[in-house]
């Protein structure tokens, strides 16, 4: 059994009386422990709804979701699920609860009754993991966007989650902040945490093990980055190829020949040099 099992899940938002908006339609997916999955799709495709279903913020209108075999639909499991699945949102300013950074990170473990000595250890570890140890007694409001998101990730890590969901966590950051967060996500993934990164930045998709593309509430594609980029269906899903892949396409029109889909910049440089020799 996979760590995350999504079985025939639908979800509707109530809009007005008698009306509802179907955000997810019969979605089935299985995600294994340690995978780095990018969940992509245009605005309104249902990707954030799916994320909110994964840690029990929403429960499915139909179908069922299991995290390590536990159903999210049963309210008794909510605490257990939230411990397992941590989530970082888009706007870093909406996720800080305390003024001092170490207090903010301790907030989660305090809530689930972790003993004080253990909290101290967890806060240390979490700050270390995101490279923010020297800031522990500072105020969150004076940090840059990237640093704030790192603190938000630390707050999630202090809960010792098995799964980290980044819900467009880089979309409000500048390029440096974006890189900081991606580096940390990759590092955490190497240490065994499952990462689900929700994004429409296709550069971020190139480093994932697997890319799941959502379209109108359904899974439109599911494969490795290369498979998804080669499909030719990305534009129909409101997405674009990563810049490097786009360049390789227009180079093909100029007469260059590429055997496989190119997603890596250095790989492209190598190939161009070879063909110009």
């Amino acid at each position: 059994m996979s760590q995350i099992e999504i079985k025939g899940v639908s979800y509707s938002y109530p809009v007005k009386e008698g009306h509802s908006l179907k955000a997810l339609k019969n979605v089935s997916l299985a995600i294994d422990k340690g995978e780095f999955v990018v969940l992509a799709g245009m605005n309104g495709s249902g990707k954030s709804t799916l994320a909110k279903l994964l840690n029990g913020l929403f429960t499915p209108s139909a179908g069922e979701i299991f995290i390590d075999g536990i159903s999210t639909a049963d309210e008794e499991n909510t605490f257990e699920i939230r411990k397992k699945v941590g989530m970082v949102f888009q706007n870093p300013d909406n996720q800080t609860v305390a003024t001092i950074i170490e207090d903010d990170i301790a907030f989660g473990p305090e809530n689930i009754g972790v003993p004080r000595e253990e909290i101290v250890v967890r806060v240390d570890e979490a700050l270390e993991a995101v490279g923010m140890s020297e800031y522990r007694t500072r105020t969150a409001s004076k940090l840059s966007g990237g640093q704030k998101q790192r603190v938000a990730i630390a707050g999630v890590l202090a809960m010792r989650p098995d799964v980290l969901i980044l819900d467009e966590s880089t979309s409000m950051l500048d390029p440096n902040g974006r890189k900081e967060i991606m580096d940390i996500a990759l590092k955490l993934n190497k240490s065994g945490i499952t990462v689900i990164n929700i994004t429409h930045n296709m550069d971020e998709a190139t480093v994932a093990d697997r890319v799941v593309v959502m379209r109108k509430g359904r899974v439109a594609m599911d494969g490795t980055p290369k498979e998804v980029f080669a499909s030719g269906l990305l534009e129909a899903c409101g997405l674009t190829l990563p810049p490097v892949t786009q360049l390789s396409r227009s180079l093909a029109d100029e007469g260059f020949v590429f055997g496989d889909v190119v997603t890596d910049e250095d790989e492209l440089v190598e190939e161009i040099c070879r063909q110009l020799k």
Binding site: P243, L247, S250, L251, D253, E254, G255, F256, Q275, L276
Partner: peptide, 15 residues
């Protein structure tokens, strides 16, 4: 990217 692609095209054709 358009300029880069065009320049590389030129380089390829001259080669």
């Amino acid at each position: 990217m358009d300029a880069l692609s065009a320049e590389l095209g030129k380089a390829l054709r001259s080669r």
